[in-house]
C-alpha cells in the first residue's frame, strides 16, 4: 500500500459519496447517467467476485463491499426511488458503443470504463457543478492510480499490464474533462457548459 493508492481509493470513495448525496439531497438524478452507474455496478460485481475466492486484507475486503453496496444503492436511487426525475432521453449513449470496444479489449484487458456523464456533457452541453465535482474525484482517483503503479514499479518492482493499460485508457478519457473543469468550474461560472 502507498500514498497514491490510498488517496486514490479515498478519492473514489469521495466521488461515490458526492454522487449519492447529490441524488439523495436534491431528490433528483437529473444530469446523471443511469446507464453508467449500472455499468459501474456490473464492473464491481464481475471484478470483485474474488471476495469469495481469495482474502487479501481487511482493507481490501471492506472497500470492495463498500463500493459494491454504494454502486447498487446509487442504481436503486436512480431507477427506483427517484425514477421520475431520471431523464433517460439525455442518457442516450449506446451501451453497445462502449461494450463492443471493451469486449474487444477484454482479450487484452480486464475492463475500461468512463462515467458517461462525460458523454452527456458533450451531448447536453453542460453539467451541474456537483456532477463535475463527482467526475473530478473519479478522474483524480484514476490519475492517482497511475502514481501508484509508478511507485510499485520502482519500489516493489511490481507491474501488472492488464491493470495499467486499462487504467491509462480510462485516465485518458478524463483529460478533456480536467481541462474543462479547471478552466470553467474552478475559475469560471461554477457550472460547466461547453463553448
Amino acid at each position: 500500500m502507498n500514498i497514491f493508492r490510498l488517496s486514490g481509493d479515498l478519492c473514489h470513495l469521495v466521488a461515490i459519496i458526492i454522487l449519492f448525496l447529490k441524488i439523495w439531497k436534491s431528490k433528483s438524478c437529473a444530469g446523471i447517467s443511469g446507464k453508467s452507474q449500472v455499468l459501474f455496478a456490473v464492473v464491481f460485481t464481475t471484478r470483485y467476485l474474488d471476495l469469495f475466492t481469495s482474502f487479501i486484507s481487511i482493507y481490501n475486503t471492506v472497500m470492495k463491499v463498500v463500493y459494491l453496496a454504494s454502486a447498487y444503492a446509487t442504481v436503486s436511487l436512480i431507477y427506483l426511488r427517484f425514477r421520475s426525475t431520471f431523464d433517460s432521453e439525455s442518457d442516450s449513449f449506446r451501451v453497445e458503443f462502449l461494450l463492443v470496444p471493451v469486449a474487444g479489449l477484454s482479450f487484452l484487458e480486464n475492463y475500461a470504463f468512463t462515467p458517461l456523464e462525460l458523454f452527456m456533457i458533450t451531448k447536453t452541453g453542460e453539467a451541474a457543478s456537483i456532477t463535475t465535482h463527482y467526475l473530478f474525484f473519479l478522474g483524480l482517483y484514476r490519475a492517482l492510480y497511475l502514481g501508484n503503479w509508478l511507485w510499485r514499479y520502482h519500489v516493489e518492482e511490481f507491474f501488472d499490464q492488464i491493470a495499467v493499460v486499462s487504467g491509462v485508457v480510462q485516465t485518458i478519457f478524463y483529460c478533456d474533462f480536467f481541462y474543462l473543469y479547471f478552466t470553467r468550474v474552478i475559475r469560471g461560472s461554477g457550472k460547466m457548459s461547453l463553448p
Partner: peptide
C-alpha cells in the same frame, strides 16, 4: 504480463 507481487488493487 504481470510480475513482482500480488495485484491487490481495488
Amino acid at each position: 504480463c504481470s510480475f513482482g507481487g500480488q495485484k491487490d488493487e481495488l
